[in-house]
């Protein structure tokens, strides 16, 4: 699919910058006439991706890089949001899937970000290494199972 419209955004790695990022992503989602509920899901996913970067990346450049793109074959079909940092990366093999029954008893109740992102977006890809992490999230304009109906 081709990129029909794109927006680049660079934010400081600081608390509440996630709200700035999600507002921009939601503005683009609304521009492509995504339904309000799906826009809300994009909002939440972008917030979580940004919070992960703000809290864990330790990026030396102190910035969060956001790329928002409307993609499709001639007409808007999906919104793609990439949240990238130039931080220390992480080992995906060491990620533990959070479970509520364990979290209720655990001292540390956090660690839900990726699970929430994967639950709210249609496609999620993570690229991570020594030069940083990119969370690439895609939300189709229309809910996949209702697209043909």
């Amino acid at each position: 699919m081709a990129v029909l419209k794109e927006v680049e955004l660079t934010l400081n790695l600081a608390p509440e910058m996630e709200v700035e990022a999600c507002e921009k992503a939601c503005a683009v989602a609304e521009f492509m006439a995504m339904s309000p509920d799906r826009v809300d899901e994009v909002r939440m996913a972008v917030i979580e991706a940004c919070i992960n970067a703000i809290e864990h990346s330790s990026a030396e450049d102190g910035h969060l890089h956001i790329h928002i793109a409307v993609v499709g074959d001639g007409k808007p079909e999906a919104l793609q949001v990439t949240v990238r940092d130039q931080g220390v990366g992480f080992d995906p093999e060491k990620l533990v899937q959070p479970k509520i029954e364990e979290k209720l008893k655990a001292q540390r109740k956090r660690g839900w970000g990726l699970k929430i992102i994967e639950g709210l977006m249609d496609q999620v890809r993570i690229e991570t290494g020594a030069d940083g992490t990119a969370v690439i999230m895609c939300k189709k304009l229309v809910e996949p199972r209702s697209a043909s109906g």
């Binding site: 996630e18 809300d40 899901e41 979580e48 919070i51 979290k103 209720l104 109740k109 929430i116 709210l120």
Partner: peptide, 30 residues
């Protein structure tokens, strides 16, 4: 955000501990 919800999980844990009841209403679909 998930940090805020994690704190809500602490409240749920506490309510279970004291055998209380906790409920939520008027949530957005997301």
């Amino acid at each position: 955000n998930s940090i805020g919800i994690s704190i809500l999980i602490e409240i749920i844990e506490k309510m279970i501990e004291v055998e209380g009841k906790l409920a939520f209403c008027n949530l957005t679909p997301t």
